Amino acid sequence: MAKMSTKFVRICAGTVAAVAVTGLGFSASASAATPPPSVPAGFSTTVFAHAGGKLTGADDIARLGDKLFVGYQNGVGSQGEPAADGTRNSTVVEFDKHGKEVGHWDVAGKVDGLGADKRTGQVVATVNEDGNSSAYTIDPDGKHHAVKHYRFSSLPHGGGTDNVSVRHGVVYIVASNPTADAKGSTAGRPALYKVTFHGTTAKTTPIFDDNITATNLVTGKTGALNLTDPDSSTFVPCGVPGLGGSLLLDGQGDQQAVFVKSWGTKKQRADVLLLSQQVDDTAFATSTEGTLYVVDSAKGEIITVTGHFTKGEAFVSAKNGLGTLSLKTGTITAFGNTVTSPKGLLFVAADHGKRK
């Protein structure tokens, strides 16, 4: 297992403030052959934002202050190959709290991961999840050098990079598409990096490997994993029984959710949950009141879901649509049928005029 010298930081801090959004209901006038858009009772949805122009392939989402940022891949290939129309750039779009576009930046390659570092006031983006990967920082308030490009110091897992998670100023980036050996093993390949930025270099420090030892949450059996498709990551709220305070890494093609506590330290411990579907992203409801933002890739829209949430409930962008995840069984249950092509997810708790 790769060694990591980073000091473990307790992640259970306060919740973030909300962006106020009013939910709108849908008309039930669709034909009997096609069920009308719906969500469970007590919830409502509305279109928060839609990027104009020729932007396509909406994917990840991040929040910085009261602004939202969404990456549009524009048909660029997973190793940076040009789209069918010759486009080589993805676009990161900034929306205000009302869903109005207030800024956008082009980055070379296929943008896959977005994260926000409130300590630096920057958005961190990764491009090309299968190879030829690099990273960018975007300073929304920067006038002359708002976008900076970085080459990774090394990517010993052999593939590209994907999701970006930031906690207390520490940037974590998922190591996607690892190179397996002749026997199909990914042992010794990092699954997650800590990344720091210096000059034009993004220095990577491995946190844990694809063959991390984990305990199955259903069977209780412990053994080494063999992750072949690390994709997204997030932090589990402290109030989630048994798993609070973990870093969650999703093995999309593996249909596994890996929960790691005290990651990168001698006290590191991991659990694994086998999932009933492939999952692209996960977000936890950190309050009973708030807004769930869902990126609808097919329509290029950001959808909001509002209502009375169950604190600690996990929402997932699953293969068959937006769903909720049972953290006891790994079963994914459809959350209505409003969003059939979900990608990035973001939950923002209501603040009622106060920051919590």
Rank of each mutant, 00 (worst) to 15 (best):
D66N: 15
D66K: 15
K67L: 01
L68T: 05
L68D: 03
F69W: 02
V70C: 11
G71D: 09
Y72D: 14
Y72K: 14
Y72A: 12
Y72R: 11
Q73Y: 01
N74A: 09
N74V: 07
N74Y: 04
N74L: 13
V76D: 08
V76G: 06
V76W: 08
V76E: 01
G77T: 09
S78H: 09
S78D: 15
S78G: 10
S78R: 11
S78M: 08
S78Y: 04
Q79F: 00
Q79P: 00
Q79K: 14
G80T: 13
G80S: 08
E81V: 08
P82M: 13
P82S: 12
A83V: 06
A83S: 15
A83T: 01
A83L: 02
A84K: 14
D85N: 15
D85Y: 08
G86Y: 10
T87Q: 15
T87C: 10
T87N: 14
R88Y: 00
R88F: 00
N89Q: 11
N89E: 15
T91D: 10
T91F: 00
V93S: 08
V93Q: 13
E94H: 01
F95T: 10
F95K: 04
F95C: 11
D96Y: 06
K97A: 14
K97V: 08
H98A: 14
H98L: 10
H98C: 01
G99H: 04
G99P: 09
G99R: 04
G99A: 11
K100M: 13
K100A: 14
V102Q: 15
V102N: 11
G103Y: 04
H104A: 05
H104V: 00
H104Q: 14
D106Q: 14
D106V: 04
D106K: 12
D106W: 01
D106E: 15
V107L: 11
V107R: 00
A108N: 13
A108W: 05
A108V: 12
K110N: 11
K110G: 00
K110C: 09
D112P: 00
G113W: 00
G113P: 04
A116W: 07
A116G: 10
D117V: 05
R119T: 15
R119E: 15
T120N: 09
G121E: 13
G121P: 12
Q122L: 12
Q122I: 06
V123F: 02
V123G: 07
V123C: 05
V124K: 03
A125R: 06
A125P: 07
